[in-house]
Design a protein around this nucleic acid. Structure first.
Lengths: 253, 253
DNA sequence: TGACTTAGATGCATCATGCATTTATCTTCC
DNA sequence: GGAAGATAAATGCATGATGCATCTAAGTCA
């Protein structure tokens, strides 16, 4: 996102106004960020959840999140929360949508700027030590297409994890947005290691979209896009003909 | 957007926690909404701008906006601002993106949840009395595609209107989003009167996309979509063969 | 009445997609 | 060592969408 128009020169009068400005003259809401850290493992869409150890919604599962600091940009707050709670840095991270229903948090008015982040499963497993209050939960999407309605989270033992606040709705919006962006943005690569086969890329796309894709058409489309290039290497340890390994090529503008 | 998970039953302990919660324990930013009210007139994308009569950025042109109230949903605040400053209600209105760079407002930390609204030009001209501090400015997009970089605003006398705060960047994001949604969302109809010709619809699409479209392909695609239906009426007062008037049909789910 | 303009239909070449078929290349089992 | 089983990867073809050219229709205006 592009910000930072150069500041105009300010008059003496305007500087006086700014010096006298009292921001506390009217009530302010709390502003937080929540981050849905998404990965694909075993051809299924997953998200990192943390069990709340405080009221409200104690015991329920939530996205990593926290209140923003007054001198901190929104994406910087999201990156901070992600590093603190998930131990990951330098991942694809984008603002998603801002949730601000007056009653979404029982404490007080909390507006949350939801973000989503993508990371390869291998990176996440490496960074996330096993803690009982963390789960890489499967996202179960009870709708087709781009409706964006709430989703459910299921852990590895097929137990549903009750979600805190409106995080089921936030995750529904995450899935909706990812499905919408997958076609024209190079998202799939963010979920894969540096080298990958076209089948792995297709499985990632299918996990995000929640439907099967035609293999030949997918291959032709990806190869024609110029987004991948063959490495000359082949995958190993498979019980069939090994596929060629590709890597992502940043698109020329 | 789907919110409002039914609230879980709260324990006595949790209710005590909530009663004792002190939201003022840490500093809060200000939260505002800004609304880009977009229309298409003379095959050009336009936006309603208001000249600021207060510091900061006095004299510069800004989107309608205002601080949110503590008991008010974000889209309700956007609708309130739109009714107050533009006199329009019941228009297509959607959240766009949240802008929160720490220095985007010189007064204090102001995070703004930007929205965009679409309205037919005829409706807007009817609702907007002529005021010297209002302009329906042309949006000049100095980039192609979906880059989303800042844009410029030009009034009817070809005078550039300097934009307040980061509103040039907000408007750039508006154009980016509209271009992205136009294909798969029924946006064009929001910018047209109830009955319209396919040429008018195409001109709206071209104004949003900033490029010419193939006429035959556009006609076939729209007619095949099932989103429009012929009314049997024809346009009047044109110096050539009159085109059939169509109306929008809400898509069956 | 004819010039002018745009609407709207038709035909065709091109390209993307879905599907079936064939061959290639690996592991595992006998 | 060879056959079975799996998937990779290429090829061919039918189908549908798109871009483009052409032709006719239906208005206004001089």
């Amino acid at each position: 996102m592009s910000h930072g128009d150069k500041q105009p020169k300010r008059s003496r009068e305007e500087r006086d106004f700014l010096a006298a400005y009292d921001a506390s003259a009217f009530p302010h809401p709390s502003v937080a960020v929540d981050v849905a850290l998404i990965t694909v493992e075993d051809a299924e869409l997953r998200v990192l959840l943390i069990q709340r150890d405080e009221h409200p919604d104690l015991g329920r599962w939530s996205l990593p999140g926290g209140f923003i600091q007054l001198d901190e940009a929104l994406d910087a707050a999201a990156a901070r929360v992600l590093a603190r709670d998930a131990g990951v840095t330098d991942v694809w991270l984008e603002q998603l949508y801002t949730f601000g229903e007056p009653d979404r948090d029982p404490r007080t008015r909390v507006i949350t700027v939801a973000h989503h982040a993508l990371v390869p499963a291998a990176t996440l497993r490496r960074g996330t030590e096993e803690r009982s209050d963390r789960r890489l939960a499967r996202i179960v999407v009870p709708w087709k297409g781009d409706r964006g309605e709430p989703v459910r989270a299921i852990d590895e033992d097929d137990v549903e994890l009750p979600l805190a606040f409106d995080h089921a709705a936030i995750l529904g919006t995450v899935v909706q947005r990812l499905r919408g962006k997958l076609d024209y943005a190079a998202l799939g690569f963010e979920l894969l290691p540096k080298r990958f086969t076209l089948r792995e890329l297709q499985e990632v796309h299918e996990a995000v979209l929640g439907r099967r894709l035609n293999k030949d058409s997918f291959r032709r489309r990806i190869l024609a896009s110029g987004l991948v290039t063959a490495t000359g290497q082949k995958e190993a340890d498979v019980v069939h003909r090994p596929a060629e390994l590709f890597r992502f090529v940043r698109r020329r503008r």
